[in-house]
């Protein structure tokens, strides 16, 4: 009997230590994912607010937290319908790869002026191709048990077997600047 109680207690304690809290992307807030393509004469942005995912923090607080987000690629818009269709059909092939996602763990946390500068290490999947990617992100407490997450990084299109798009007769830069900016709300 005593042994059983120890087993149950061990399971409960250990499992409580697994995740102390979970945060989900707050889809009611103004979220943003922005890809910026640089060209010789002009830049253009592809944007969407359709980002979803979660952060589940561990017994160590933010450190080692699981971090997952995904982007609905069919909603990415450059504010020009035809260019959007070209982007979807000719380059991102969204009928086959409708979502891009990132799955990783927070490997470093530094608190600075009330916000957390974190490093997330994981795999980024775009266009069906995965690549190890390290992201530096800021987690800013929103005062309501949630966080605002802001990160900037570069995606090299050829790493994901995406053909370099040609706009008119000029090819765009193969390195795209990506900005993600979204809200996480605490769900447990």
């Amino acid at each position: 009997m005593k042994k059983n109680i120890i087993i149950i207690l061990a399971i409960i304690l250990f499992s409580f230590n697994a995740y102390s809290s979970e945060y989900n992307v707050d889809k009611s807030k103004k979220n943003l994912v922005k890809f910026t393509s640089k060209m010789t004469l002009d830049d253009f942005d592809g944007t969407t607010d359709k980002i979803d995912g979660f952060m589940a923090d561990s017994k160590d607080g933010l450190l080692n937290s699981n971090f997952y987000f995904e982007v609905d690629m069919n909603t990415l818009t450059t504010n020009m319908g035809l260019r959007d269709r070209h982007m979807r059909d000719n380059y991102l092939h969204t009928s086959k790869y409708p979502k891009s996602n990132y799955k990783g763990n927070i490997t470093s946390v530094q608190e600075k002026n009330g916000k957390f500068e974190v490093v997330v290490e994981g795999d980024f999947f775009i266009h069906g191709v995965g690549k190890k990617t390290k992201i530096n992100a800021s987690l800013i407490p929103d005062g309501n048990n949630g966080f605002k997450v802001v990160a900037k990084f570069i995606v090299k299109l050829t790493d994901y077997k995406i053909e370099i798009p040609q706009m008119m007769f000029a090819k765009i830069n193969e390195n795209m600047d990506v900005v993600i900016d979204f809200m996480l709300k605490k769900v447990k």
Binding site: Y19, E22, D52, D72, N74, T75, T94, P98, V187
Partner: peptide, 13 residues
């Protein structure tokens, strides 16, 4: 055991 569930992907026009 996270409560988050993925949503359906949007279908392009």
């Amino acid at each position: 055991d996270v409560s988050w569930k993925p949503s359906e992907a949007t279908v392009a026009r």
